[in-house]
Amino acid sequence: MYAYLVFAAVCLLGVSAQEPQRCVSPPVWTAKLFEIDSRRTFDVFANITYDATNQRIRIDESIDNFTNPTRDYFDTFFFFKEKMMYIVNLTSKECKKRDLPDDIVFHPVGIPPDARPLGEAVIGSNAGIKIGVTVDLWSGTSPRGGRYMGVWTSVGCIPVSELHRLESGDILRQSFYDVALGDVPERFIPPSNCQ
């Protein structure tokens, strides 16, 4: 009986060790972004600069519009505290300064407060050293409405991907690559011709 209790305790410890611990993502970073939004006819490939501390995001994007073979490139600055945005057409060099619409609000790239852990997984393989990365999976209510699932590295809490199933049934998926930590204040200076 004692051996059974010890075995059960070891099994419970093994299971509890697999449950992700809530972490806080770095507040400032840059990365490559790939976004699929089922509401649009194009995917976004972008460089993203993210600053949660000052609530600002820059998306320097190239847009694949599958209904139009030409590519449009935009560099968009979102300043959420100031409720201002700058949109630069990289082809024409035209820049427009606009008030942020009320429905565009800052959503932190992090684990939502109501999220529950789904477990750990390995991207790549765990068959050898340095051929995979352990990630934590979380699910909850999306800050955009609907359901949410997110993936972060177990070490460092670096964002890997987010999937939002909106109340409308539409899906928004964002994947982050080549994440570099640190502040890059010069990335948030709009061109001088923005009016």
Rank of each mutant, 00 (worst) to 15 (best):
S175L: 13
G124D: 02
R187C: 05
F106D: 00
M85K: 08
A17F: 09
A3P: 10
N47T: 15
R22D: 03
H107R: 15
P159F: 05
L33P: 00
L181Q: 08
R98G: 08
V28Y: 01
L100W: 00
Q195H: 13
F79C: 01
P117R: 03
R187N: 11
D178T: 10
G124T: 05
D51K: 03
G146H: 02
E162Y: 06
K96Y: 14
G150M: 04
F42K: 11
K83P: 06
S192N: 13
V109K: 07
I36E: 13
Y86H: 09
R147C: 12
P190V: 01
M84I: 12
I129S: 14
R173M: 15
I104C: 10
Y50M: 00
D136A: 10
V10R: 08
K130N: 15
L33E: 00
T67A: 13
A17K: 11
P113E: 08
R71M: 13
K96L: 14
E186H: 08
T41Q: 15
K93W: 13
D43L: 07
L100G: 00
E35H: 09
T153Y: 01
L163P: 08
A127M: 09
A52E: 09
V151L: 10
T53G: 09
V179F: 06
F80S: 01
R165C: 10
A31N: 08
Q18K: 15
M1T: 14
D114C: 06
F74G: 04
G146I: 01
L163M: 15
A115M: 05
V155L: 14
T134S: 07
F77G: 00
S168R: 04
I87C: 03
A121D: 03
A31R: 03
V155D: 12
S139G: 08
A46G: 00
V28I: 11
Y2Q: 15
R116I: 14
L137N: 00
I63D: 05
V24R: 12
Y4Q: 15
R58E: 02
E94G: 06
Y148L: 07
N65Q: 12
E94D: 09
F78C: 04
S192I: 11
S154A: 12
F7D: 08
V44C: 02
D178K: 15
V44Q: 01
V151G: 05
I123S: 05
Q55W: 08
M84H: 15
G14A: 13
E120M: 11
A180R: 15
P113N: 10
I104P: 06
L12A: 06
A127T: 07
R147A: 09
